[in-house]
């Protein structure tokens, strides 16, 4: 069903158009003397609002342990296929014996990333976050592919309170082992 929008017939001054232009020019003239609204970028930096979606990064838990388990859900969900993960098993570590799996390689191609944040949304381990970082530059394409080391460097540690592996350990020590 097409929806027809009735148009008001134009008045004479609207049809002559020049008065309309003059009215417009009044507006632009006022803007000419209005104060600037932009920010002097390198000196002034915007306050990053919470929930800002900057460069995706990998984070560690408060004890500095790798959180990502290379489930590849982010790789799966990423609309422009920017993420590439090589999963692999990891050695038992005393503080998280159940991990078993972690990324051997984790690349995010920032030339493809569209900052949609779906990777953060989907991550079951809360290991990938789009943080404050918003400037990004490089001389080659390869420089803009963030590898695992770079991602952890950018990501740092997030003070979340899940301590998943500590809970596992506590359960094991509690005696619920076989």
């Amino acid at each position: 069903m097409p929806y027809v929008v009735e148009r008001k017939p134009l008045t004479l001054s609207e049809r002559i158009y020049l008065p309309q232009i003059l009215a417009g020019m009044r507006v632009t003239l006022r803007r000419l003397f209005a104060p600037n609204v932009t920010m002097e970028y390198p000196e002034q930096r915007p306050a990053i609002p919470t929930g800002y979606r900057g460069v995706p990064t990998l984070v560690k838990d408060p004890h500095g342990r790798e959180k990502c388990v290379s489930c590849q859900l982010c790789e799966f969900v990423c609309p422009p296929k920017a993420i590439r993960i090589t999963p692999g098993s990891v050695e038992d570590q005393p503080d998280r014996t159940h991990v078993e799996k972690g990324p051997q390689a984790f690349d995010i191609d920032m030339l493809r990333c569209i900052y949609c944040g779906l990777c953060q949304e989907v991550c079951p381990e809360e290991a990938i976050f789009l943080q404050n970082q918003y400037t990004l530059s490089g001389y080659t394409r390869a420089e803009l592919v963030n590898d695992k080391a770079k991602l952890y460097e950018l990501g740092g540690t997030l003070p979340d309170q899940h301590f998943k592996w500590d809970k596992k350990k506590a359960a094991a020590e509690h005696g619920n082992t076989h």
Binding site: T97, H98, E100, K168, A170, A171, A172, H174, N176, T177, H178
Partner: peptide, 20 residues
């Protein structure tokens, strides 16, 4: 309550690994 914790990597044979 606490969940059970069981062995995660039992090799049942040369080609099969069991997560109990």
């Amino acid at each position: 309550e606490q969940k059970n914790v069981k062995p995660k990597r039992t090799e049942l044979g040369p080609r099969v690994t069991l997560d109990d």
